[in-house]
Design a binder for these strands. Structure first.
Ligand code: MN
Ligand code: MN
Ligand code: ZN
Ligand code: ZN
Lengths: 155, 155
DNA sequence: CATTTATTGCAAGTCTATTGCAAGTAAAAA
DNA sequence: TTTTTACTTGCAATAGACTTGCAATAAATG
């Protein structure tokens, strides 16, 4: 409700909070709280994946006081619920988080100069996975793929 | 010479040390030292990429006393010289290092159970890189690719 | 409203990696 | 070989991301 008042409300966000509460949190004995709403709301309204400290600082600017520890705990809960993906990009000292809700598996490219991160809406690794399973006798469960370089502005 | 005496000597290692000293270290005003020899020697004789603390512990077992700080400084120098690659594998809290010397670009698969890391002697990303440059207008400089799953023993 | 129990904030701790500085030691110069 | 230079090392301290213990707070439920 105070989200409505603050004018940072959207229908998408409303649906996300509803779904998160009923299907995610409540089902696992957890609660929808002020902080979880705030983090979800922020992630919903941001293009770039955010780090814990970025979430912390942005919420501070938005006059929402949440301890950094709570941000860490919150993104971990959201990750457990499958609502958020944790990205550990190369040569960044900290993890980033982005909403998974409604979006499909994809990878990223990152600018080595300014740090901009862009989605790559593709995954070319299905065939390769089979080949690797044959060659190594591993059962492949997951993969990470990331490109880096210079974005249009930084060239 | 004391490497010879200790019996951990090999022709490959001798050549590596020679090359490192003359083309790498000396050319950049650096010196071939006891600790750099020891780290190179260890990496030369190990299949798995090693973390700084693993290098530290292994050298301790080998009765070679090197401070952990020196291990960090050493792998960074070797990385700058292009002799060693730093791997930041997913869900491992620390970097690993492997010899680059004489080996070509490749990727890895890691067992989520036991941590075993196996080389994937392939890189399927040349074509994809062009596509990504066209789509994103980035200039691609680098990429990381890593698989994880369960190794034959851990299935 | 009252009870129950998940969640939060604060302080302190962990873990990997880096930095400052005096002491040590390769390698060049004498 | 001896001296001199300046690169390296070890130790202690520090940084930075993240986690944990615990008392206080606040969702949910009836
Ligand atoms: Mn993304
Ligand atoms: Mn390798
Ligand atoms: Zn850029
Ligand atoms: Zn295994």
């Amino acid at each position: 409700m105070n989200l409505l008042i603050k004018g940072i409300f959207s229908w998408r966000l409303f649906l996300l909070l509803e779904k998160t509460t009923s299907q995610g949190l409540r089902a696992t004995g957890r609660r929808m709280t002020r902080t979880r709403k705030a983090v979800l709301s922020l992630l919903e309204g941001t293009q770039q994946p955010l780090s814990a400290s970025e979430i912390f600082l942005q919420l501070q600017k938005d006059q929402i006081a949440i301890d950094l520890v709570t941000v860490y705990r919150t993104v971990n809960v959201l990750k457990e619920l499958g609502l958020v993906v944790q990205l550990d990009l190369h040569q960044e000292g900290q993890s980033r988080y982005e909403l998974k809700e409604g979006r499909k598996h994809h990878h990223h490219i990152r600018c080595q100069m300014c740090g901009k991160i862009v989605d790559l809406l593709l995954c070319p690794l299905k065939k390769l996975t089979k080949l690797i399973e044959e060659r190594t006798q591993f059962v492949v469960e997951d993969h990470t793929l990331e490109f880096s370089g210079f974005c249009p502005k930084c060239q």
